[in-house]
Design a protein around this nucleic acid. Sequence first.
DNA 1: GATGAATGAGACTTCATTCAT
DNA 2: AATGAATGAAGTCTCATTCAT
Lengths: 182, 182, 182, 182
Amino acid sequence: MNAALGQFAENGFHSSPISQLAVLAGVGVGTIYRYFKDKDDLIHAVFEKIDENLKEELAESLDTSLPDRSQYIQFISILIRYMNTHTKEFIFMEQYYSSPYGIETKHARFLSSDSGDQSDPIANLFAGTKKAVLKNLPLPIFLAMTFGPVIFLVRDSLSGLVTLDDAVIRQTAEACWNAIKA
Amino acid sequence: MNAALGQFAENGFHSSPISQLAVLAGVGVGTIYRYFKDKDDLIHAVFEKIDENLKEELAESLDTSLPDRSQYIQFISILIRYMNTHTKEFIFMEQYYSSPYGIETKHARFLSSDSGDQSDPIANLFAGTKKAVLKNLPLPIFLAMTFGPVIFLVRDSLSGLVTLDDAVIRQTAEACWNAIKA
Amino acid sequence: MNAALGQFAENGFHSSPISQLAVLAGVGVGTIYRYFKDKDDLIHAVFEKIDENLKEELAESLDTSLPDRSQYIQFISILIRYMNTHTKEFIFMEQYYSSPYGIETKHARFLSSDSGDQSDPIANLFAGTKKAVLKNLPLPIFLAMTFGPVIFLVRDSLSGLVTLDDAVIRQTAEACWNAIKA
Amino acid sequence: MNAALGQFAENGFHSSPISQLAVLAGVGVGTIYRYFKDKDDLIHAVFEKIDENLKEELAESLDTSLPDRSQYIQFISILIRYMNTHTKEFIFMEQYYSSPYGIETKHARFLSSDSGDQSDPIANLFAGTKKAVLKNLPLPIFLAMTFGPVIFLVRDSLSGLVTLDDAVIRQTAEACWNAIKA
DNA sequence: GATGAATGAGACTTCATTCAT
DNA sequence: AATGAATGAAGTCTCATTCAT
């Protein structure tokens, strides 16, 4: 899956033949098909793994004892840094969500969102922040103002259009806070 | 190009064989190759056309006599509405920018951005708004806080996760303004 | 036909699209089809023209009043020089004779050779030379010893493997004579 | 490769689709691409194989203990017989050398000819013959007088213009010898 | 369980030829 | 008579997937 991630991020899904992934992974082509039904299955599996890793990272890094503002700014900062250092993961995600794969997944998650996953640290953060200071802002806008700028900024960073030093990250995080605070 | 846009948005570049585009366009396969060197050329051409259309729409809709805040909020609103109604264009763009095509284009434009295109309404708006109230915010952050939320929100709208009525659009635009104002 | 000759020699029959020939000739594609039934017809026509030109050149240059040996050596020399300077024609011929086109033509000519074309200067020369000094050498061998070396040498010249100065040409012509003389 | 040789000789490179070669070889199209990078690669490989076969045949058949004249005549005779019986190989070679493929190869070999390949029976024969009796004849002429007539004669034989019986072969070989001897 | 050779559907692209203007 | 846009058959090549070893 690491080999797949690298290839997918570098060359895109359609320019990453299974045969090449096999070489990079140091296994036979057939072996891949023992663990993944087909190429789509592999792609989804890579996505799930990345998604999981990101959530774990956030769950570990977040200090839930901080006041709302600090916690939110910390969240944004960690998110930016994580995405900016995990280039392959970020690029993969971008592709994934711009493709039929991601749209499927997004729908599936939306449909099951009523379940209210209590173990999801992000959901909890949002819930907390939202209750505290954002009574009148709908969740979709909250999400848009939180993730939208982060994604856009990291994109530009990977394109070499901006360097994400501490000052830029802090300014961005504060701008996001200003956008959502009551 | 309309047929191509529809297919690309619906199925992605790699699941839109030229033969299918030809059928949809009601022409022979060879005809496409009279007007576009190859598939890549067609994709770039569709992008350029969409990009042009968006700029024209903005140039026509923007009221540059408004004060900064109103103008900015108007800009965001128009952008959201345009993207949300021009579904195919939006999805195409998302794909385009997540692919090698878009990265090329982004770089090319960035390198030539010194030229200062006076006819670009977006550039002019940014320049104006920036000078007036944003002296200390770097351009990349300004861009991130402006386009990031819009893109994210429209994505979710297309996924059915949110309905973009006037209230939501206004709230989002105001949140963006709060993020960037001095 | 000149445009066609140049293209065929340069790029081969199969890498010389009619559309390109039309551009080089400064006419429309359709126009070519008014004068030649199809591409094969054009190829054969070019061949016929070249063949005719060569025969005319030889008919004009040959001095039939010379003694046998001198006349033969003169013939070889003229042939080498002509082929070596008419690069396009030579390359075209090589291709033509190595293709189904040439094989057809060769057969057709063989079948009609009984007619004994009195106006063909080459045939006359051969007849004369043959009668005079070569009573025991079959015609095919005579032809092989005459044209074989010339073709081979010019090929190598065009490949840059040898430079055909007067000395080389004379030596070759004399070697041919030594091969066939009684 | 045998299937390819047959098709190429029969129909030419450009009228031998890979799909047809696959059928003749009793394999799938994709299989051919496992062993040859592309069609060009296949063509070159067929050439190399034929070339190798010819050299082996000559190396085995030549009696290097014979005196110069006998050895040379033996060489020409073997060459004619080999080419005349190996029709497919001969036609393939003709095409190959009249195409961009052959020109490349010829150049490449010419440039590396200084290396003096001691295992090449043809080179050795030429060297020996040349030193013994041909001090004043340049190598290109020697080659032209040797291979030119052979190629021309076999061509005519394949066209049905001459039957290569022992007498014709002997006469031709002797004529070649007369051409080059001191 | 692992392997990778074989497969062939299907994608892209070219180009000879036609025919309405 | 000249034109060249339109056409689609046909060719090259890739790659996801299978299956015998």
